[in-house]
């Protein structure tokens, strides 16, 4: 695990002893510590129910929504305690993309991109608005496809386009980190490929954490990988090294398909 002891200045996120319980004593994630490297794609993989999504959602405090869920430990974003930030500030800095594309059905494509500003009551000048919409849509390679239909509802796009729109919505805030929770699991192979290529481009500007149950996806696009099993972080390291030479027996068995 040596290469993971990245210097603090390289780490955008530090996860320290994080545990999450859905109800008292029933832990879904136990004592996970990891430093997430800046401008890299970090994949979290593992079998269903291993706590990968739960860990991801602890990072931007989505668990705050559900009063039964208890989160322990500390998460530092650029050295600052995430628990002490306002949820709005934290989620401006940490964007999130979900398993199923979920553009707001009541908003146009353009409004979906700047939904974070609109819904939080941040007023933008018309020129600023247009600039953010164009840049965000260009970042996700959707601009050419939708530039003539910006005022139409986002729900009329194809699944892959909708998911890219959702990524654009997360990018509009210029976050530091983007969390993606199995973003391609409901998409066809072509749309999946587009999003994977997009993520590789986006890591120039953003730090990306990607939850996936698809090992080959992790192998294709991630720089670092975490393997989780039964709520525990079993192994964390450079993706290439982990796939070639896993240190833990469970990682080896998972990667070689002995269980899934």
């Amino acid at each position: 695990m040596d290469e993971i002891n990245v210097e603090i200045k390289d780490a955008v996120l530090e996860i320290k002893n994080v545990s999450v319980a859905y109800n008292k004593g029933n832990y879904a994630v136990t004592n996970v510590s990891a430093a997430i490297k800046r401008n890299r794609i970090t994949a979290i993989m593992g079998p269903s129910g291993c706590g990968k999504s739960t860990l991801l959602r602890a990072i931007n405090r989505m668990h705050d929504l559900y009063p039964n869920i208890v989160t322990e430990g500390q998460i530092l974003l650029n050295g600052a305690d995430a628990a002490k930030m306002s949820t709005m500030m934290l989620r401006r800095k940490i964007g999130m993309v979900f398993q199923r594309p979920n553009p707001f059905p009541n908003m146009s494509i353009a409004d979906n991109v700047i939904a974070g500003y609109k819904l939080n009551g941040i007023s933008l000048k018309k020129s600023e608005k247009e600039e953010i919409i164009e840049k965000s849509l260009q970042d996700v390679a959707l601009w050419k496809e939708v530039k003539d239909s910006l005022n139409q509802k986002g729900t009329f796009l194809s699944g892959g386009q909708q998911q890219r729109l959702c990524i654009a919505r997360a990018l509009a805030f210029q976050p530091e980190v983007i969390l993606l929770d199995e973003p391609t699991s409901s998409l066809d192979p072509i749309s999946t490929k587009k999003i994977e290529e997009l993520l590789i481009e986006l890591k120039e500007q953003y730090s990306i954490i990607l939850v996936t149950h698809n090992m080959s996806q992790a192998a294709r696009i991630s720089d670092y990988s975490m393997f989780m099993y039964l709520g525990e972080l079993v192994e964390y390291g450079k993706t290439k090294e982990m796939f070639i030479n896993p240190k833990d027996k469970r990682t080896d068995e998972y990667l070689t398909g002995k269980f899934s």
Partner: peptide, 24 residues
Amino acid sequence: SIKEAGFALGVPYHKIIFRILIPS
């Protein structure tokens, strides 16, 4: 997931109800 998309953008609860759920 529509509601969660709002939360993930840091939108306060009452605005999610009045500006996302009711219009949707």
